[in-house]
Simulated scan of single mutants.
Amino acid sequence: MQKKMLSLFMLVALILIAACGNGDGSDNGSSENSNENTSEAAETTSGDVAIDGSSTVFPIMEAVSEEFQSSHEDIRVTVGVSGSGGGFEKFINGETDISNASRSIKEEEKSALEENGIDFTEIEIALDGLSVVVNEENDWVDELTIEQLKQIWSESSDVTTWSDVNEEWPDEEIEFFSPGTDSGTYDYFSEVVLGENQIKRDAALSEDDNVLVNGVTGDQNGIAYFGYAYYLENKEDLNVVPIVNGDGEAVEPSQVTIQSGEYEPLSRPMYIYVANESVQNDAVYDFLTYTLDNAGTLAEEVGYVGFTEDHYQEAQGKIDSLR
């Protein structure tokens, strides 16, 4: 009797072991699925990417960040607008991963970054044509030379009215609207047009290009300058002024004339500056890779001019070398 009970007990035990083991292999499959889910979770990148700087570069980086975040929901990208100079201040303080600039970095900014132990990489992201604009009712300014721009905008100049520039133009006081002193556009204009001269003291300054647009659209005698994208966005309400280049030709900014260099000397590259250490962050690296894959297309969608594919591939090589 005892032997029969022992045999029955062993039989039940074997049945239970077989049931727990799922001899059909389903246990192994479940384990594989679990590993796959864990692997997929590990591959999902999350984190923050902090960007600030130029209002001119902003439309490109805003477009890139919006497209990027639609497919990378776990990465948060913030794009601020403090002007090129203001952006570099934050970059120097280690507050941002990427700094947008519509001018190249200054020597004093390089020195400050070095003092703070921040290595960086410069990337030219697109091309811009700094656009000089007047009110849509202004039908007398058909072109300007760089020398005339200098006379109009320089504080040391006696020019205050349109007739001071050309006696055939109205005897009306010119109203000036300029990017602020933290703007790379301001710096570029000062370097190329004003030289050692100071800008008009009564010029209304703003880091927000939309404020400049509103200033000119609201004043028949207004004049301003800003990035090509802001002109395109508001071209129905503004007149762009053709600028006489080195060949003596009056040229309007366009994608063709900016890329060819015909619109000079007001064509210029735009930059992003990347903190090398930030590239170790997968979120920043993924964002930069996406930026370089799409910057050319998105730059043209928002009104700027992209570089060739080779240019962006070379920039990607720089980023990859930092990993």
Rank of each mutant, 00 (worst) to 15 (best):
residue 75 I to Q: 04
residue 292 L to Q: 00
residue 269 P to N: 06
residue 40 E to L: 13
residue 116 N to F: 03
residue 278 S to W: 01
residue 47 G to E: 10
residue 295 A to V: 09
residue 120 F to P: 01
residue 190 S to I: 00
residue 206 S to V: 02
residue 199 I to V: 15
residue 94 G to T: 04
residue 238 L to R: 08
residue 174 I to K: 04
residue 284 V to W: 06
residue 168 E to L: 05
residue 34 S to K: 14
residue 262 E to W: 01
residue 130 L to E: 14
residue 289 T to S: 09
residue 129 G to W: 04
residue 39 S to V: 07
residue 226 F to P: 05
residue 80 G to L: 12
residue 123 I to A: 02
residue 267 S to P: 00
residue 293 D to M: 02
residue 186 Y to A: 12
residue 68 F to L: 05
residue 201 R to K: 15
residue 79 V to C: 02
residue 21 G to A: 15
residue 262 E to D: 12
residue 250 A to I: 08
residue 181 T to D: 09
residue 302 V to Q: 08
residue 164 D to M: 09
residue 193 V to H: 10
residue 117 G to R: 00
residue 214 N to L: 11
residue 74 D to R: 07
residue 322 L to W: 04
residue 159 V to D: 10
residue 246 G to Y: 11
residue 153 W to V: 03
residue 50 A to P: 00
residue 77 V to N: 02
residue 320 D to E: 11
residue 131 S to A: 15
residue 68 F to G: 08
residue 45 T to E: 07
residue 51 I to F: 03
residue 59 P to D: 12
residue 215 G to E: 14
residue 41 A to V: 09
residue 152 I to Y: 09
residue 80 G to H: 05
residue 214 N to C: 06
residue 211 V to Y: 13
residue 241 V to A: 07
residue 262 E to T: 14
residue 14 L to F: 04
residue 172 E to N: 05
residue 4 K to Y: 09
residue 130 L to S: 09
residue 304 Y to R: 01
residue 174 I to R: 06
residue 282 D to N: 12
residue 47 G to Y: 10
residue 60 I to H: 05
residue 292 L to E: 02
residue 35 N to Y: 11
residue 223 I to M: 12
residue 101 A to D: 02
residue 105 I to F: 04
residue 80 G to M: 08
residue 290 Y to P: 08
residue 95 E to P: 01
residue 215 G to F: 10
residue 104 S to N: 11
residue 270 M to N: 13
residue 269 P to F: 05
residue 321 S to R: 04
residue 217 T to W: 01
residue 165 V to Q: 07
residue 283 A to Q: 13
residue 206 S to W: 07
residue 294 N to R: 04
residue 308 T to E: 15
residue 262 E to A: 13
residue 278 S to G: 03
residue 191 E to H: 14
residue 157 S to C: 12
residue 105 I to L: 02
residue 28 N to P: 00
residue 159 V to I: 15
residue 226 F to M: 15
residue 269 P to Q: 04
residue 294 N to A: 00
residue 317 G to K: 13
residue 57 V to H: 03
residue 175 E to R: 11
residue 37 N to G: 07
residue 32 E to A: 14
residue 93 N to G: 02
residue 162 W to V: 07
residue 194 L to M: 14
residue 93 N to P: 03
residue 45 T to P: 03
residue 299 A to H: 04
residue 118 I to A: 06
residue 167 E to Q: 11
residue 322 L to V: 09
residue 205 L to Y: 06
residue 317 G to R: 09
residue 147 E to C: 02
residue 165 V to L: 08
residue 60 I to L: 15
residue 314 E to A: 09
residue 106 K to P: 00
residue 130 L to R: 00
residue 31 S to V: 11
residue 186 Y to E: 08
residue 177 F to H: 03
residue 307 F to D: 06
residue 39 S to H: 13
residue 287 F to E: 10
residue 61 M to N: 10
residue 251 V to W: 06
residue 268 R to G: 03
residue 265 P to L: 06
residue 109 E to K: 00
residue 299 A to L: 01
residue 190 S to H: 13
residue 24 D to H: 11
residue 160 T to L: 03
residue 70 S to G: 08
residue 49 V to P: 05
residue 294 N to E: 10
residue 101 A to H: 04
residue 312 Y to E: 07
residue 27 D to I: 15
residue 185 T to I: 10
residue 132 V to Q: 02
residue 319 I to K: 04
residue 203 A to R: 03
residue 151 Q to A: 13
